[in-house]
Simulated assay, not measured.
Amino acid sequence: MGLLGSDPAAAPTRRPRRWYLVALAAILGVALLVTLVVVHFAPRTRYAATLPRPAGPTAPAGPTAPAAEAPIPVPPAPAGLPVIDYGPAPKGFPADPDPLSTIRLAEGLHPTRKVPAYDAPGGRPRAFIAPTISGVQLTMPIVDRRSGWVAVLLPSANRTIGWLPPGGWQTVPLRDLVVVARDTYKLYWLRDDKLVRSWSVTLGIPATPTPLGRTFILGRSALPGAVYAETDVFALGSVPDRPDAIPAGLKGAHIGIHTWYHDRSLGKKDSDGCIRLTRSGQRLLLDELVPGTEVVVVDRFREPAPTT
């Protein structure tokens, strides 16, 4: 037998095979076309779950609301507690946490009724504070807050604070700050943290030094005698650090800011602890400063630039 296609007798069998191949190719082509159409138009969402999603930027966390402070109980105050007046304040109150700070205390507290003062929030009541002292409305600078309680600089005490519970008082804004520097014998008056004026002053002698630390203007009064140049005096919340060294005629007195009948002792130690300045300076401060204004006596102070 010869090779396929070389034998004439085999010719009738080759024609049907060629048609078979053509038919098979056509069927395969149709099947391929149908497959492509089905794949192209098939829904693709069913495959999405199997594909990894690209990592995007993490959304920033929103602001966290501050946790509300739990209220601190107010222990009852015995009716027989003393009332703080112009005399020495009762003992047992805590020390001022930052007595030499020259950062202005911008808010004061005025009692609207007699309120108890405690040695800590929720602590022990030590005394009552009334709306006035010697007929003068009382305003004390606020130094701290905690769960509705407020700490204030106490009158008739040096570098001491008391804590008042919520209620029975109102707040007032304080714009001014008086800084007294013992090294330069200067008094600086600042309003809204900007220097307004400064003056040379007289300070206390070594036996009765001008007390260091934060205090405040308690009120103003007129003292008899030509030595005060017929000008009112500011009484401060502070008292002499060494009350036994004070002359008998000044027993029970507070430290004050006032003028004097002469200016020869400005820039020196010549008082019983008070701060003396010129008559014109005192009159200007009397016109401008209100009760509750903070006064800080420090050893050194960097003089700020004056306002323009």
Rank of each mutant, 00 (worst) to 15 (best):
A253L: 06
I103P: 00
F234T: 01
Y86W: 13
R145N: 08
P88L: 03
T171E: 05
A55R: 10
R53F: 08
S147R: 02
I142L: 09
W260M: 00
A55W: 02
D232Q: 11
L33M: 10
Y86N: 13
I205R: 15
M1Q: 11
R220P: 00
T50A: 15
T210E: 09
G162E: 03
T231K: 05
P224V: 11
A120W: 11
T50K: 11
P247Q: 10
P243A: 03
V37Y: 09
L51K: 06
T184L: 10
A65M: 07
G29S: 14
P165F: 04
T278E: 04
P54G: 04
P16R: 07
V239H: 02
A55F: 03
L289N: 02
D96Q: 02
S134Y: 13
A95L: 11
I217P: 08
T184H: 10
A67S: 12
P43M: 12
A222M: 15
V179D: 01
A207N: 11
T45E: 15
P304G: 02
R276T: 09
W163F: 10
A305Q: 14
V296F: 06
R276D: 03
P76H: 06
P75L: 00
L51V: 15
P57R: 04
L4T: 05
V201F: 04
G135E: 05
P116K: 11
L109W: 00
P209G: 04
V143T: 15
V239R: 15
A31Y: 01
T139F: 02
L190H: 03
D263S: 07
T293Q: 03
D272W: 13
T139I: 13
L21Y: 11
V239I: 15
